[in-house]
Computed example of a mutant assay.
Amino acid sequence: MAIAYRQQVDDDTEFAIWKIEEEAEDLYSQLQLNDEEKAYYEQLKIGKRNLHWLGTRVLLRKMLRTDEYIDCKVDAHGKPYLVHLPYHISLSHSFDYAAVMISKEPVGIDIEQVKQKVERIAHKFMRKEELDFISPDRRIEELYVCWCVKEAVYKCFGQKEVSFLHNIFLEPFNFEGHGVVNARLKKDNIDIEYEVGYMQYHDYMVGYVKGKEDEK
């Protein structure tokens, strides 16, 4: 297992993608887990879910450059956080890859394998105005950009009860394999603008965003 891709977004922010090639036992041996984490791990089914949980945490350890125990918990909204380290984190995984983003500010990252099936659910997360700016010749890739961008915003904001369809809005963009999409999260009295990066990595799409501590 090795870092397949790494990008420094700014002085305080970076993300990395890791291809998961080891067996679960190999990944497990690289971690220090407390009793609660060990019990959770034992509940996971053998397979990709098991490897994903291990893979994101091994990658997090590599990015933080430490062999010490990392106290990583999940808050009431399902957002992971570090108890004793001054970083915000976001974790994602899809099939053979794990992705982790760290920063001094809130962040969100999503990685998805590009598949035709996204077409069937596009109406569930895209408004008509957004579907109208999707180009016919790159439709599948652009739909995945939109999904990953919205997922990254959702994770960065870090609260439940946010609808991709009704609360996260995207501006038109030109797909070039990588770039930036302007997004806006609107819910009740909340109105936040985001500049979300995206990139195609082989047959995967990645969306990533950095927010601000006082945005809520």
Rank of each mutant, 00 (worst) to 15 (best):
Q30S: 11
V58T: 06
V58R: 07
F157G: 00
K155N: 02
H93P: 05
I46F: 10
L170F: 01
G108V: 11
K150T: 08
E161V: 09
F157Q: 09
N189A: 13
L31W: 02
H88Q: 11
H84Y: 13
I134E: 02
I89G: 00
S92G: 10
E215P: 01
I134F: 01
N50T: 09
I111Q: 04
Y201R: 02
Q159Y: 14
E142Y: 00
G47H: 01
E21Y: 01
P86I: 02
K160M: 13
D12M: 11
Y201N: 08
V107G: 02
E215A: 15
D67K: 13
I168D: 01
K115Y: 05
E21K: 07
E195G: 10
V114P: 12
S92L: 11
K155C: 03
K38V: 10
V58A: 01
E37S: 07
D132T: 12
I109Q: 06
K19F: 07
T56A: 14
S90D: 08
G177E: 04
V100H: 03
L185Y: 00
E37M: 10
S163A: 07
C156L: 06
E22Q: 13
Q32V: 15
T13L: 05
G179W: 12
Y41R: 00
C146W: 01
L165Y: 08
L170I: 00
K104A: 14
K115D: 13
Q113F: 03
L27P: 07
K124E: 02
V114Q: 11
V196M: 06
S90W: 12
I192Y: 03
K210A: 05
K187E: 05
A98H: 02
E213A: 15
I168A: 04
G108E: 08
K155Q: 03
I111G: 08
K45W: 04
F157H: 11
L31D: 04
L33T: 07
D214Y: 14
E215F: 14
I168E: 04
V206Y: 03
Q116I: 12
E36V: 14
F125W: 01
R57L: 08
G207Y: 04
L33P: 01
E42Q: 14
C148N: 12
D137W: 11
V83P: 11
D110Q: 06
L165P: 06
K117F: 08
M199N: 08
S94P: 06
R57G: 06
Y87L: 12
A16N: 06
K45R: 15
D67S: 14
Y154Q: 03
L60M: 05
N189M: 10
N189E: 14
Y208E: 03
L143W: 00
D188G: 09
I111C: 03
Q30N: 13
L85Q: 15
F173T: 00
G158V: 02
K104L: 12
K19W: 08
L27V: 05
K19R: 14
K48E: 15
I3C: 04
V107Q: 06
K186H: 12
I102Y: 09
H202I: 11
F157K: 07
D191P: 09
E14L: 14
C156S: 11
G197E: 01
S90P: 06
Y154R: 00
N182Q: 13
L185K: 00
S94R: 03
L131D: 05
Y69N: 02
K160I: 04
H178Y: 07
L185W: 00
Y201S: 07
F175I: 07
A76T: 13
M63I: 10
F95S: 13
L33Q: 04
K128S: 14
P136F: 05
E195A: 15
W147N: 01
K48P: 10
H93Q: 03
D67H: 13
K150N: 04
